[in-house]
Design a protein around this nucleic acid. Structure first.
Lengths: 251, 251
DNA sequence: CCGCAATGGACTCGTGCTGATCCCTTGACG
DNA sequence: CGTCAAGGGATCAGCACGAGTCCATTGCGG
């Protein structure tokens, strides 16, 4: 490193704090194929396409993802052999999300690693989601927005442990959606994906679910009532719950 | 298209709100070369490297950006011919930011386009930066953090119009830095870049500068005092100022 | 005065990815 | 029962880009 015995000279300009790590970060996340697999998995886990639902056709999806059909097909093939997707040919065919995801499928990398970025994710999520809740409550929502929220809230309430993570994520995503900033929605989707990866490492208990349900209801109520402060604090409280859980289990 | 007379069948699953536009977005921003140019410009405009300062050497920077040295060099060459950078060979050489940026350099694309995403950026920025200010105030800052903040605040106060945008950006970035979440810092840097592009289209008036200076001081004071609410509201107020300005000028 | 170290600059090769084109499969509809 | 539309599957040429290697330039230290 530049640490010990930086030669002598030339006036080192920047003490180089976090700022340039933020701007001199990797341009590409890596391999296009891997990135595509990640995106598809993100769509599944966040419940953007429901189990049994159909993905957009390759000829439409590939350009949207900015990859070639060949690359997209490779990614789909990978997820097929992993048991996540299923393709049917012919008209009205397509690529479908299998209703029952592979049981033992925890293809994540080495588990029980100490997530160095735990605090990073949690802090970032707090800022994004609490901000989204507040922003959503401050807007005048359309009828469709309201129904979207209440519908997802209802679907989430009382769901079983098998579906909870996905439905929960979908609801949180909906809060960001109605905040009216696509960039914010994207950011929430991403941070949610990162949080989900961590959550996969800890158990999901019925008491937690019940607790979450109540907090969800409180947040949605505040949003529908146009109460920004309430929505923000409700969401912050909700997030603090899982944050504590994660800190506890992941030490 | 699928528009008129969607045939009949097969149960359309998703009304497709904003969520899948968030997840089925492009994998790569495009061309690696263009992306690299953008990043370097971002570093300049956000003041991550000061005028006269030196960029990290190519052999170090290229891997950090995840591009080859060839691609990085192409990007640097472009910015050289555009008058932003200057390279010197030999030991203790390097690539330097020219002290006086090209006067007529406003290489942005067609000006006076109606920025459809204006509200998106402003909303997103509010969430990120107000959240960052609050988070920063809620942390126990190190001595270095405090000095970093006060130093940048001092540098910003009373700066001329020529430097103001850059120093202002650098200060806002510092607030995000001390919030302790690298992801948050990255997001703020990105949204700041987008805002700057819009700001380039409107004039920068001395009264605005003076106003901003006072608000900056208030925010930093609140952060140093450990007052999250004050920091958040101060930042929100500050951002509301530029937001109004932008909405006014860009109709 | 010589050599070394650190930087930018140029070249080559291998390959992952794109874009285009074609084929295969299936169901609806006349 | 034939045809067409809409989807997945496959193949191939071309190229952008990454990795590696060497050259050119500069200044410092001995």
């Amino acid at each position: 490193m530049k640490s010990s015995a930086a030669p002598p000279p030339a006036g080192d300009e920047l003490p180089v704090r976090g700022a340039d790590q933020a701007v001199f970060r990797p341009i590409r996340g890596g391999n296009a194929f891997e990135e595509t697999v990640e995106r598809l998995l993100q769509a599944l886990r966040l419940g953007v396409v429901a189990p049994g639902g159909r993905l957009p056709p390759g000829r439409e999806l590939a350009p949207r993802l900015g990859v070639s059909r060949a690359t997209l097909r490779e990614a789909v093939a990978t997820l097929q052999s992993a048991g996540y997707l299923e393709s049917r040919r012919g008209r009205y065919g397509g690529t479908f999300v299998v209703a029952a995801p592979p049981a033992g499928a925890r293809p994540g990398p080495a588990r029980s690693r100490p997530p160095a970025d735990l605090e990073d994710v949690l802090q970032f999520r707090l800022v994004l989601e609490a901000g989204a809740a507040e922003a959503a409550a401050a807007r005048s929502l359309t009828r469709a927005d309201r129904e979207h929220l209440t519908g997802l809230l209802a679907g989430c309430t009382g769901a079983g442990p098998a579906d909870y993570r996905r439905l929960d994520s979908r609801l949180h995503l909906a809060v960001a959606e109605v905040a009216g900033s696509p960039s914010l929605t994207t950011a929430v989707a991403d941070v949610r994906t990162r949080v989900n990866e961590l959550l996969d490492a800890i158990p999901l208990l019925p008491p937690n679910i019940e607790h979450s349900d109540r907090q969800h209801a409180a947040v949605v109520t505040a949003i529908l009532a146009g109460d920004p402060e309430g929505a923000r604090s409700g969401m912050a409280e909700h997030l603090a719950g899982t944050a504590a859980l994660l800190r506890g289990f992941l030490t």
